[in-house]
């Protein structure tokens, strides 16, 4: 379907952007790389009167060092992140996760801000207007019933971004700009786990920066993604693991999962299960169980929920073993690509 009519607004500064947002609030929508939003506009999931295109705000691009950690501007493309040697070195789990998103072309356009704010996905929702009409719409858009959890009044559309579980493991914070200035929130407090109101962001706010703390710099990490097709496939289940070791024992650890709940979620009890221990198959499997218990997949995507939950278990086990096997004393191989800044 053709794009709906809208007016494109192009602020040049964050202040201009927040002003425009404040002015148009409910009638406006933010577009960054557009790789998620534009297809949805064509499917009439949205029909905003104004599109606020952030791409002219130069300030929001690029990766900067800060207090031993890194700041990533919300408009930084996934390609830039994938190719950043600093990220590959300090936060390998993010490097790995960014690399699995969509395809090289989409990563050239898609931004980290868009990946964090990605709309939740469901086979009953990401369809054309005519298709959704055929099934009487759904609770997330234009309708009042849920097709995947019948009888329920909650929307179960799955959050399917690849980088947020990595960012959760790294204890990232995000900076949000609004009419009252900026505020910082831990990413773990940003999501609601409700499919049709996925994040705690007012319609007059925007995400400006992702802040990676020094604390988790250098932790070994692994991201694993379940997909059917080798490329251009959203995660059907995704898991990120980070580990900090002292000698052969685990000092600290995090696991986060994606695409199996309406939000990317940190798995509770992982640090407790791993801290002070030497990782082996059995312990890794225990962590896998914890992750599987956190996962509540429904028929929002391809592959049966049962299988996806099972894969959360298996992938977590494997990722924990793999992360534990990475020798943190060795410098990591340099990723290709020269630039750190867009």
């Amino acid at each position: 379907m053709s794009l709906p009519d809208f007016q494109l607004l192009r602020p040049r500064t964050v202040a201009e952007a927040t002003e425009l947002l404040a002015k148009h609030a409910a009638n406006a929508q933010i577009v960054a790389g557009g790789t998620d939003l534009i297809p949805s506009l064509r499917q009439r999931l949205f029909a905003p009167r104004f599109l606020i295109d952030l791409r002219a705000i130069v300030d929001l691009r690029g990766i900067r060092a800060r207090d031993g950690g890194l700041d990533i501007g919300a408009l930084t493309t996934l390609t830039t992140i994938e190719r950043s040697p600093e990220i590959a070195q300090k936060y390998p789990v993010l490097h790995q996760a960014a690399k699995t998103v969509a395809s090289p072309l989409l990563r050239n356009m898609g931004t980290i801000g868009g990946n964090i704010c990605l709309d939740t996905r469901c086979l009953w929702y990401n369809q054309s207007l005519q298709w959704r009409q055929s099934c009487g719409f759904c609770i997330k858009k234009d309708g009042d019933l849920c097709h995947v959890a019948p009888g329920g009044s909650k929307c179960w559309a799955a959050f399917s971004g690849d980088t947020p579980p990595a960012l959760l493991c790294l204890e990232a914070e995000i900076e949000i700009a609004g009419p009252q200035g900026t505020r910082r929130v831990p990413l773990s407090e940003f999501y609601t786990n409700v499919g049709d109101a996925r994040m705690k962001l007012q319609n007059n706010e925007l995400l400006t920066r992702v802040l990676l703390p020094v604390r988790t710099a250098g932790w070994s990490g692994v991201y694993r993604k379940l997909r059917i097709r080798g490329s251009i496939d959203y995660p059907l289940a995704g898991i990120a693991v980070v580990l900090k070791r002292s000698n052969r024992h685990v000092a600290d650890a995090r696991v986060a999962i994606t695409a199996v709940n309406p939000a990317p979620l940190l798995v509770k009890g992982v640090a407790r299960a791993l801290a002070g221990r030497e990782v082996n198959e059995e312990i890794a499997l225990q962590v896998g169980e914890l992750a599987a218990r956190t996962a509540k997949p429904l028929t929002t995507s391809a592959l049966t929920p049962e299988y996806r939950r099972e894969m959360i278990r298996v992938f977590t086990k494997r990722a924990v073993l793999e992360a534990a096997a990475i020798d943190q004393s060795l410098p990591r191989a340099q990723p290709r690509g020269p630039s750190t800044v867009d």
């Binding site: 369809q127 298709w131 059917i228 097709r229 080798g230 251009i232 959203y234 391809a302």
Partner: peptide
């Protein structure tokens, strides 16, 4: 092709998965 009550659940090339070069 996946159906629910006559409704094609994957009428697009994202959800109807032809192999990509990566796994060929």
């Amino acid at each position: 092709m996946i159906w629910k009550d006559g409704l094609l659940m994957n009428p697009g090339l994202l959800e109807y998965r032809s192999p990509s070069a990566a796994e060929s």
